[in-house]
Design a binder for these strands. Sequence first.
DNA 1: ATGACTCAGGAACTGAGA
Length: 263
Amino acid sequence: MRIATWNVNSIRQRLDNIVAWLNESAPDVVCLQEIKCETQAFPREPFERLGYNISVHGQKTFNGVALLSKYAFDEVQHGLAGDDGDVQARFLESVISVKTGVVRVVSLYLPNGNPPSTEKYPYKLGWMDRLIGFTRERLKLEEPLVLAGDFNVIPAAADARRPAAWVNDALFLPATREKFRSLVDLGLTDAIRAVSDADDLYTFWDYTGGAWQKNDGIRIDHLLLSSQAADRLTGAGIDKHMRGWEKPSDHVPVFADFAIEPR
DNA sequence: ATGACTCAGGAACTGAGA
């Protein structure tokens, strides 16, 4: 079973690229972020035609997450608990039945947090605290759990081509990295780091300044696995070539493969 | 370097992104 995540930067602008990528990569489950449309405006037909079930948590203009799955969703939960006043569409949790039980997959779009001097940064850190609380509870279930999405966190200097350029950025500030570490230290495995310690693995290249041409990237899209998921991990990778296609997203897909059979 | 792109919204621009 292949589970992938991709910040597509508008589902409607990226339709052709996404369909081509689905045909090429054939993921079983896909976590999408920044769909930038309301739930009812999600273009379902091209994905249903490819055999995907669809779940969407959208809002007008900004944010928005979705899940595609070749297998039916047993349960779906919209939104991250812990702040009833948070109206930003950034979190979608699902449960999918498989031969050995279930897989729990979350599509998340963690707040950017820039500029750090504004209320945006405490919102990011508070959101991370809520994610830690959610994860602590779900890990008690001892299930295969996959937290996948755009975390807007550069975990370490090796995850940026030019780490010095990010030292005052909300994606790389010490408090950001410390909280991400607290999340991982609950007992999660970073799927990409489980298969490679290379220092040139990036998932985002800015549209400006020729960042792609200079390979001036950062690794901020992640799949974090519970031990029950990590035990079944058979591979992981980054579909870097998608950044070179016409009309690309500024992020590329990241995927992990598991020895998990559908029911 | 107050920049550089690319999106949505809505009809010229602004705000957000990272």
